[in-house]
Amino acid sequence: MIVAEQKKLEEIVGQIQDFNKILLVGCNECVTVCEAGGKKEVGILASALRMYFLNHGKEMTIDEVTLERQCDHEYLEEIRDMQDKYDAVLSLACGVGVQFMAEKYHDKPVYPGVNTCFLGATEERGLWTERCQACGSCILAYTGGICPVSRCAKRLMNGPCGGSTNGKCEISKETDCAWQLIVNRLKALGRMDDYEKLMPLKDWSTDRAGGPRKVVKEDVQL
């Protein structure tokens, strides 16, 4: 899923303080699971903002709504009539939701309430870690199911580098060395011979490097 983290209150306040009526919109998908922008977080943030502005002597309406998804037309349409009554929208969806909202309601200011961080997994309650960078051409088949693009600080295709120490990355003792993990996995799979195969230069044209990407599946298009 997409993992996000709520912005600091001061930053959010700075974005919306010149308005009087704000619609705070949550999303029921990824940001709910990572506890950054679901219904619960919408409630807490709305209450905090109302208290903040009241305490600073400003009359501010903050209303709440949480949509099934903000990255789909049909759910975003649900607030078409509603959004008219507000000066601006504060979205707690990921960057995708914020942009889709901005595209749909072209003359409505839309502000992000979260920082979209990465594609990751819930390791445990309250701990999310990165697993994928959406490079567009998956190489997990060759690396024992562990991704060096997202998990090696240097995204080395033929790692590890000389900085790997006790299974940890040179950038921090808290960070696992992806290539140590890969070697461990290849060993467990009895595939250490694969380690010596040189990984060719990666085609980054399917990555961000190739410009904005698009997936088209014609057979389902109406």
Binding site: A153, K154, M157, N158, G163, L198
Partner: peptide, 28 residues
């Protein structure tokens, strides 16, 4: 060489490239 990660240096906030790695540079 791969190079030390930028977090050790004076441009911690910079991007790194790592388009290719040191083995691929050898091949190049």
């Amino acid at each position: 060489l791969s190079g030390d990660h930028q977090s050790f240096g004076d441009c911690r906030q910079g991007q790194n490239v790592y388009d290719i790695d040191s083995m691929q540079l050898l091949q190049t």
